[in-house]
Design a protein around this nucleic acid. Structure first.
Lengths: 153, 153
DNA sequence: TATTGTTATACTCTATAACTATA
DNA sequence: TATAGTTATAGAGTATAACAATA
């Protein structure tokens, strides 16, 4: 499918890169969601557990920032995760306003399953691509993310 | 941020490419959504209007496939679009089961505004990248999309 | 019977606004 | 007053299942 024809007067030899990214991401995310769901999780759960495991998170605000969602949205997810026994929340004795989120054993087990799904997903994605190509792709994507939030126009 | 440390025993020098793609897409999509909303639209609306304008769509099923959503989901959007006067639906005289979706003048005007937003978005995304780099990026993304749905593992 | 599309319903993710508790 | 987090509510997008109309 070519959309070039609709962009009258605009030099657009190929598909707009934003559209390609949107479509790719939609397809890839859907496949990833299915894998995460099969492993008993979801994308927000995976991102939250990953942030808890790999970052030194000082507060829920930090955690929300790390995941890229609002504090209220994080509360929503953490509520479900706490009810499911995946994390515990307790008030920081040093400052009872902030709460300390910790992974339970069950949370760790889910994390490991989701990590496995994530690794498998990634291995699959890399098929036919060299490490150099994947690394280059990552830098190009970083540039897009930067441009989306910082570039002028 | 490096997540390499959490992938014990897995050779993963850099971030998983799936995660990079997820984060990039989230950031870029959010920026695009804002632009489309400012122009009076949304991503599904844009994709539907784009498909109507650039493809020879024979039925709503075709249109849904082109956009990548279910028929019922498309009905949902078309309902709103018809109520907003952006499209009309009439039964195909040749086969009264299928319906013909057509853009109204108002729909065309919205299409043009969204196209403008899309072009601006794309121009912004390309900042600092050569045409060759963008083209290469597109082929890499195509590979990922293919791998997500076809590659074995 | 099979197909095209619609309607009813519900789920997930996200958000804003109002609120509580703490500093 | 300002900050950390929660709760209430809502909205967008998507989906499945049941349905109606047509072939």
């Amino acid at each position: 499918m070519s959309t070039g024809s609709c962009y009258d007067g605009v030099v657009m030899a190929h598909q707009p890169i934003g559209l390609v990214l949107t479509r790719t991401s939609r397809t890839v995310s859907r496949a990833f969601d299915e894998r995460l769901a099969a492993a008993g999780g979801s994308l927000p759960l995976w991102l939250i557990l990953l942030a808890l495991k790999t970052q030194t998170v000082r507060s829920q605000s930090d955690l929300a920032d790390a995941v890229g969602i609002r504090g209220a949205t994080l509360s929503h997810h953490l509520g479900g995760m706490e009810a499911a026994g995946l994390v515990t929340r307790r008030r920081d004795p040093a400052s009872r306003r902030t709460s300390l989120v910790e992974m339970t054993d069950a949370g760790t087990r889910l994390f490991l399953r989701l990590r496995e799904a994530s690794v498998a997903h990634d291995k699959r994605l890399r098929a036919g691509l060299s490490d150099e190509e994947v690394a280059y792709l990552a830098t190009l994507l970083d540039t897009l993310a930067f441009n989306a939030t910082n570039a002028s126009t």
